[in-house]
Amino acid sequence: MTLLSVEGVGIDFGGLRAVNDVGFSVSPGEIVSIIGPNGAGKTTLFNMISGVYRPQRGRIALDGTDVTGMAPNRLAERGLSRTFQNLQIFQRMSVLENVMTGCHLRERGPVLGDLLSLPSSRRRSAATSARANALLERVGLARAAEREASSLSYGALKRLEIARALALEPRILLLDEPAAGCNAVETEEIDHLIAEVAKSGVAILLVEHDMKMVMRISGHIVVLDRGEKIAEGAPATVSRNPKVIEAYLGTQAAEAGDAVG
C-alpha cells in the first residue's frame, strides 16, 4: 500500500552533496516526518520529490509510476501537493484568491471562455470560490478572505499555504515546517489539522522542528544528517537512537522521548 516511494535519491550543488542515497516510503493516511539539523537536506529532498529539482541519482515513484524528474504541475495532477518553508504566497492576490488558485486543476478551462466570461467559466469560478471559502473556514482564516495576502501575519500565512495545498485535494501532502514561527495555540491547531487530514487518507510527509509535535503525530520518522539518512523508525525508537541524539536531538530528544515513552 505504498503511495510514495523514494529510492536512493541524491543531488549535488557544486561540490556539496546536499542529499545522498536517501530512501523511504509513505502510505495513504500515514504521517512520515523527516527530521535533521539545519542544512541536513530536508528542503532539498522536498524539492526533488515535488519536481522543483530533478534528482541526479535515484528514483521516485508515485503510486507505482516512476515520476523522477517530472514537472511540478504534472505531479500536482497526480495528487502531490506541498507547502514551502520560506513561504511562497501570491502576495498581490486576496487570501481567498490564493486558495482558489490551489483549485486550479479543477477550475481551469478554455481561455476563450475566461476572456468572454462565458457561463461555464463563471460557474467554475463560483464553485471554486465556495470550496476555497470552506477551506479558509477550516484553517480559521474565513474572516480574512477578502484581505490582500501580504497583509497577513506570518502564522496566518503558514495556515494560508496549508489551505492552498489542501485545495488541490492531494493524495500526498508535503509540509515544510508548517508550525515554524507559530505560537503554541497556532501550532496545536496545525497539529490537529494535519492529523485530521491524515485520517481522511492523505499521505503526509512532514518536516518540522517542533519535536513534541513530531513525536506526537508521526507514525514513522526519517532522520537526515548532512544529506544522508542516519536512522529511521517509530518515534520512540528514533528518539533513543544514540546516533540521532548525537547528530541532532540532544537534550530536546530526551525530553520528547520521555513525553512519548
Binding site: 511540478p72 504541475n73 500536482a76 486543476l105
Partner: peptide, 8 residues
C-alpha cells in the same frame, strides 16, 4: 514555483 506546484 508555487504556481507550478498547484498545477499551473
Amino acid at each position: 514555483v508555487a504556481a507550478r506546484t498547484v498545477g499551473v
